[in-house]
Design a protein around this nucleic acid. Structure first.
Lengths: 134, 134
DNA sequence: CTACGTGCAAAGTGTTTGCAGCTCC
DNA sequence: GGAGCTGCAAACACTTTGCACGTAG
């Protein structure tokens, strides 16, 4: 909220509620729709488009970010730690992987192409151990 | 086409035209809409939904696959070689990177989580050298 | 001849936007 | 008091689907 005010934004009921809901899910992640549903339990008057707009505003300020885990809706979470999602394209299971594994690839790509990888934005898809053939 | 027939599919004009168009783009990739537009130059009667259905059918048979390069439409290409796309989230530029760079990460993830990574499906996003700050 | 493929139009999903009213500072 | 938020409904982009007709094998 400090960061919001600092960035020229206003502190409103909707924004406080959305931020609290995000803090409440802790280490997990949530879609905009699920978040809206939860918020509606206590605040049925907060509109889904406000949730979208707020999440986007928060993202500009570096408070939240979103990732795409597969073909469905994006998921949102607080930017409190790095996320490296492995998403099974068959069963939809999501593994929250160790970022350290990705470091050498990030460095190699930077080196070779001058490209700064952001693994947080799109999940790495594939098949989990249960779904992989053989 | 052999593979199509072998998989129990029929050889039709639409399918031959779509396959030819895909072969024609060579090493590149194309969205379903762009593909439809091109096909319409010679075959204005082939419907976009047929293009979608055909690409999907081809994918089941391992002839084509699709990847998501960013927030826009998916791109399609023939499954003739591995693709490791780096997609700049600012300017949209796409780098077709060397698959060898990704091998050790693929192995490490397999080892640690039993998860078989498919880097072909979702691009790796980030910032290209022109767009990266600093 | 019949299962599979197609055109067309309509629906679906996830997200964004225009506008008029409201509220924080 | 005015920029910034909000609700609402409608639009949006991309893709999928239902249905009746057509065609490959």
């Amino acid at each position: 909220m400090d960061r919001l005010r600092h960035g020229g934004g206003r502190s409103t009921v909707s924004r406080r509620v959305i931020l609290e809901a995000l803090m409440h899910i802790g280490d997990a992640h949530i879609t905009a729709e699920q978040l809206t549903d939860r918020i509606h339990q206590q605040h049925p008057d907060i509109n889904e488009s406000t949730v979208y707009r707020t999440l986007e505003r928060f993202e500009e300020l570096g408070i939240t970010c979103h990732a795409h885990l597969g073909h469905g809706p994006a998921v949102w979470y607080l930017t409190d730690r790095q996320r490296r999602y492995l998403s099974c394209s068959r069963c939809g299971d999501v593994i929250d992987a160790d970022p350290a594994l990705f470091e050498s690839l990030v460095a190699a790509v930077e080196d070779r192409y001058g490209f700064t990888v952001d693994f947080g934005h799109f999940a790495v898809t594939g098949m989990c151990s249960n779904c992989a053939p053989g």
